[in-house]
């Protein structure tokens, strides 16, 4: 394995390789052989870091966002409740949006749908942490708290190639394409443009008080008369709700039905909090 450490975007130009930011997700994935790379590119000197009004460098750590008074409350709360203090001070927001699923079958290399196989082992198997939406092929639950917050906030990404709404970064895996993000190979997220809401919040239900992924995370942001709701831990990708009634159309597995109740309670609370 080779590690490149370019000092600017220009220096990076054209070279291929896998971006390494905080490494909190990528390093374990590489060790387990879940991701393979000839070349790693340490992008920390390339990707902007820091917060300037509504613009957040993709290299900003969750720890920095957690305490930034300028960031919307939903984002701060989502960061504060994510992972652990050490992981938050290592992990970047760009990497967080792109972290791989925590589905235990996937992490243990079952040849499942998301790995290119034909079945979802979670569906027949142990799946209490899995999805209630978008789970036709793959029932994994997206692990990112900040992604739900940023989605509710209507965030736009700027990459080294284009701008795209955060909602378009994610896609459900299909027979033809098992990817859950729409980034091109080598494409780098540089900045996030985060609109300022009038009010926002993030609520997270988990198995212990801290340092564990969301069973259900609910982000809500109010812009004028409109309130947007996005969920973590309920679908293979961060999940936008049109309204609370969407929860009636959930498609839970036997072991995830409780997540619908959980989401209902948290959505109600989030909306109450913003009212």
């Amino acid at each position: 394995m080779e590690l490149r450490q370019p000092s600017s975007l220009a220096e990076l130009d054209g070279a291929d390789g896998l971006a390494l930011a905080g490494g909190t997700d990528l390093v374990p994935l590489l060790r387990d052989g879940l991701v393979e790379a000839e070349t790693l590119v340490d992008v920390r000197a390339v990707v902007p870091r820091g917060i300037d009004g509504g613009t957040i460098g993709a290299g900003t750590t969750l720890a920095e966002l957690e305490v930034d008074p300028e960031s919307p409350q939903a984002l701060r709360e989502a960061c504060a409740l994510a992972a652990s203090p050490q992981l938050r001070s290592m992990g970047t927001i760009g990497g967080n949006l792109l972290q791989a699923t925590r589905c235990w079958y996937w992490r243990l290399k079952y040849p499942c749908f998301l790995h290119g196989g034909s079945t979802c082992h979670a569906r027949q198997g142990a799946h209490r942490e899995h999805a209630i939406f978008g789970n036709e092929h793959c029932a994994s639950a997206h692990p990112s708290d900040p992604a739900a917050a940023l989605l509710s906030l209507g965030t736009t990404l700027r990459t080294d190639r284009r701008e795209l709404p955060l909602a378009d970064l994610y896609r459900l895996p299909t027979e033809d394409d098992r990817d859950v993000t729409a980034l091109e190979p080598g494409e780098l997220i540089l900045e996030l443009e985060v609109p300022k809401p009038e009010a926002s919040t993030y609520l997270k239900a988990m198995d212990r008080t801290r340092f564990t992924f969301a069973l259900v995370g609910v982000a809500a942001a109010r812009f004028g008369s409109e309130t947007k709701i996005a969920l973590a831990g309920v679908a293979p990708i961060p999940w936008l709700l049109e309204s609370a009634d969407d929860l009636d159309r959930a498609t839970p597995l036997p072991g995830t039905a409780y997540k619908v109740d959980l989401a209902r309670a948290l959505v109600r609370r989030a909306l109450d909090a913003l009212a």
Binding site: L3, Q5, L20, G23, T24, V27, P28, L40, D42, R44, Q86, L87, S89, M90
Partner: peptide
């Protein structure tokens, strides 16, 4: 920081 997942070259 967690030294077990920090690549020493970084």
């Amino acid at each position: 920081a967690l030294s077990c997942i920090t690549l020493v070259h970084t």
